[in-house]
Design a protein around this nucleic acid. Structure first.
Lengths: 153, 153
DNA sequence: CAGTATCCCAAGCGATACTG
DNA sequence: CAGTATCGCTTGGGATACTG
């Protein structure tokens, strides 16, 4: 067991930003290409206030940005788009989806299939080491103190 | 944009089980090898009640199991260990950690380094397709309706 | 349409004390 | 040591109404 400092572990920091359930759902919608307030409201079925809060939070954290756009002949509206920081969260969402497909899904199978845009093959998330070995389980990983390690408790 | 049914997306199911911040922290500790109530209490600095709740929840969901053990000459105690279902959550935690190291960490760098047990090389989580292409971004992924798809909203 | 304002109520936190 | 019991209090959810 690694003797690391829980306070510095990045999981805590990440979870502090991502926060709670509604936030994850908003991010899911964003990755699915939903960009408008009303669409998110309908699809996530969360109260307006909650959605507004989470969107504001995600914008403040730099995961989403508010972008103006105008359809021809319409007045200006705006939409929420993922920033680079937000896009980099993709593995987290995919990992959740893969686990959910396996353990929290109905018997019907995965409702969404991720495929490689270039070749069409299904995409999965996996652990790979620097020597290109593919690891199957958490048991194949040894955690060590990193550059920013401070051992405490 | 994929026209999927938000209600059946496995991300929702996964997040419904994993729940909230404290739950993630408990899981983090479990993956770090912390198994005892008191250790988790001290390291996560959460109220006893909250920890007890989350542990019970994770046991009920089948992510942790309570195992009895006895050190020589001591009375029986028990500890919390990850089940297979819990261990399979590892990519989620690693993904959170990688993102946190990049965006939520101090300047000191990652406090924890994951290495391959067999060869010692650093381990990373990545998207790979069936044709062994490595994908860099969410933009390289095309979501399609899967076997369990029901399109609604 | 895209939010903000308001209000009420339920859930959950945090502290302290107690039990096996 | 490993929890359970209790409690005050704050946070945050959910509904409704209002504004640009």
């Amino acid at each position: 067991m690694l003797d690391y400092d829980p306070a510095t572990c990045a999981i805590g920091g990440a979870v502090a930003i991502l926060g709670d359930r509604p936030t994850f759902l908003v991010l899911r919608e964003a990755f699915m290409g939903v960009r408008r307030f009303g669409d998110m409201l309908r699809r996530t079925a969360m109260p307006r206030q909650v959605l507004a809060d989470r969107l504001a939070h995600l914008v403040a954290e730099g995961l989403l940005r508010k972008a103006a756009y105008r359809d021809a002949g319409q007045r200006t509206r705006h939409e929420y788009r993922l920033t680079a920081k937000g896009l980099d969260l993709y593995p987290v969402l995919v990992a959740l989806m893969q686990w959910g497909d396996r353990y929290a899904a109905g018997s019907a199978g995965a409702p969404i299939l991720l495929t490689h845009r270039d070749c069409g093959e299904p995409v999965t998330l996996g652990l790979v080491c620097g020597a290109r070995h593919e690891l199957d389980s958490a048991r194949d990983v040894t955690p060590l103190p990193g550059p920013g390690a401070r051992k405490i408790a």
